[in-house]
Design a protein around this nucleic acid. Structure first.
Lengths: 144, 144
DNA sequence: GTTTAATGTAACCAAGAACGTTACTCTTAA
DNA sequence: TTAAGAGTAACGTTCTTGGTTACATTAAAC
């Protein structure tokens, strides 16, 4: 994952839209739940709309809504939409190609990072927004 | 993973120590292979020594060496040693607890992140430094 | 013993990323 | 026609990262 909160906030947004089922929800209302600025919410929603996970309605009484049922939105799609491509630090890594190790380590690391990333994404593929909603209720039951 | 290159550089270091089998290797020699400053190398090695993955020899003709066979060093141990605890952005995330979603989303996200992290770490547990060394030679064969 | 080469670490700096914020334009329901 | 809201650019602050200098400590070699 990464050092930002984009994915966490995006899942919160989608869970909130699922919770508020009916109608268009404004970025201000979502921002109040997330505890941040409406512009931050709109920035993320801009990406989620482009990825067709959410629909937007401009103008007065406009707002956002899920583009499909909660069960139709896997968290992996959310992750890939809002998270920048993970490079695992390989961008700031420029080994000496005149050294036998330095010349070849990058492609080895790429293979390792690819598998690690795939292992993580496989778990995100197993969860969708409906499951998040279900877990929210389960937490609720544990904190009566 | 994260936005830094600590894990990538650490694997490079260990691969280099495995490649240079005999004797103590100085941080300057490693830095020349990695393409960075010796202090950066020593900072990472300081953590790897504390984790008992590497041994250090102070004084003239001192340096570093693997603490065990390359096969005895899984990359997961390296990852856990040099990488700060991944929080997946949950530190900068302070939802409104007066909202039913905001009050419960954090614990749901923690569960999701834990599984995603475990999926990634499971892949890192399958690789050790000996395997990295083997793959370095395989890359060599492909680039004769 | 003295010298020399090395680790160990603190301190500082520059570059970049992340996020909040302000300030707009554009759109549309009422 | 107005008011509410999306869309987006621009900017500042804070934090992280990695490079760099500097210096104390250690130990082999002579």
């Amino acid at each position: 994952m990464a050092g930002n909160s984009r994915f966490a906030v995006s899942v919160h947004i989608l869970a909130y839209l699922a919770y508020r089922k009916e109608g268009a929800v404004s970025s201000s209302e979502i921002a109040a739940s997330v505890g941040t600025n409406p512009v931050v919410i709109r920035r993320l929603l801009s990406a989620l709309v482009k990825a067709r996970l959410v629909t937007a309605q401009k103008g007065a009484s406009g707002g956002f809504a899920l583009a499909s049922t909660p069960a139709g939105i896997p968290l992996l799609a959310v992750y890939r939409t809002v998270e920048p491509k993970p490079d695992h630090g390989l961008n700031r890594f420029a080994p000496n190609h005149r050294c036998p190790v330095g010349a070849r380590i990058e492609s080895v690391l790429q293979g390792i990072f690819f598998k690690a990333q795939a292992g993580m994404e496989a778990e995100l593929a197993r969860v969708n927004v409906a499951e998040v909603e279900r877990q929210l209720h389960a937490v609720c039951a544990r904190k009566p």
